[in-house]
Design a protein around this nucleic acid. Structure first.
Lengths: 141, 141
DNA sequence: GCCGCAAATGCAAAAAAAATGCGTTTAGGC
DNA sequence: GCCTAAACGCATTTTTTTTGCATTTGCGGC
């Protein structure tokens, strides 16, 4: 088993979550995925399709989000996207408005300075941001 | 009647859209709003509630988005948000994860440089971005 | 290893949001 | 004023999200 997955589960266990096969597979799937995924994608993914019901995946995502292990993103689609939150890791996304492909952008995020200013000036707590670029990818153009 | 609204409608007319009361009120509502609004909010707003059916607002938003007059945003909620696209005007948003309040950030957006780089390196067309900050506002903290 | 209980699960079904079909109305060019 | 395509309203469907409830299961304690 992936040690990072174990670590995440270990941390969640402290919050009262139980170690179940579904939880383990869900986290593994999210970790292996290079991009955020929808509930439908997750529920039908190789690791989870036969493992548990879609509703279970839904509730796991809900709980993981409550515990800050997962974040729910908009990404412009009808369905919500979910991504694993790895401490110290931040991603912005590049999304094709034509084919819907989603790529994580590795370039350093230029927003942290403004985020700090906002935190200071507005007094908002637990500030974080989402940055997405939309356009038509070369394949679709 | 607001001249900006007239101008927008005039431009849309060239694309074949008809000038209807519902269209006028919708654009006026979006223009007056300081923040993006959901379909439900729009359909029940003062100007539109008695003006037309919710489906009509839905279809208008759809058409306006197709013609680049309106943009559909995620903003982290179950429902989609819509905002009028005013040429040369760009907004980022600050959203309270507790009460759901949405504020437009007027500070200069620090992303355009990165956007230019992405455009150049990836070859994506019609690139634009969305930037949102999430946190708990002082009232909710 | 066995017990007990709360967490977790599956299945059905409700609620919410988005989208479509279709017959009627209407804007606007002629 | 006439005509046609755009716009509309209302019913209905589809898709996505969420809840209820009875059953199962992880896991701490004995």
């Amino acid at each position: 088993m992936n040690p990072i997955v174990q670590e995440i589960i270990q941390s969640l266990r402290k919050s009262g979550l139980r170690r179940t096969k579904a939880l383990e597979e869900l986290i593994t799937t999210l970790l292996e995925s290079k991009r955020p995924m929808t509930l439908a994608e997750l529920a039908t993914s190789a690791r989870l399709a036969d493992q548990c019901d879609k509703v279970t995946v839904f509730r796991l995502l809900q709980r993981l989000a409550e515990h800050g292990a997962v974040r729910r993103l908009g990404l412009h689609e009808r369905a919500a996207y979910f991504t694993l939150l790895i401490p110290g890791k931040h991603s912005d996304y590049l999304i094709c408005t034509s084919c819907g492909s989603i790529k994580a952008i590795e370039a350093p995020c230029p927003v942290h300075q403004l985020e700090a200013e906002i935190r200071e000036k507005t007094g908002y707590r637990n500030l974080y941001h989402e940055l997405e670029f939309f356009g038509v990818c070369p394949k679709c153009a």
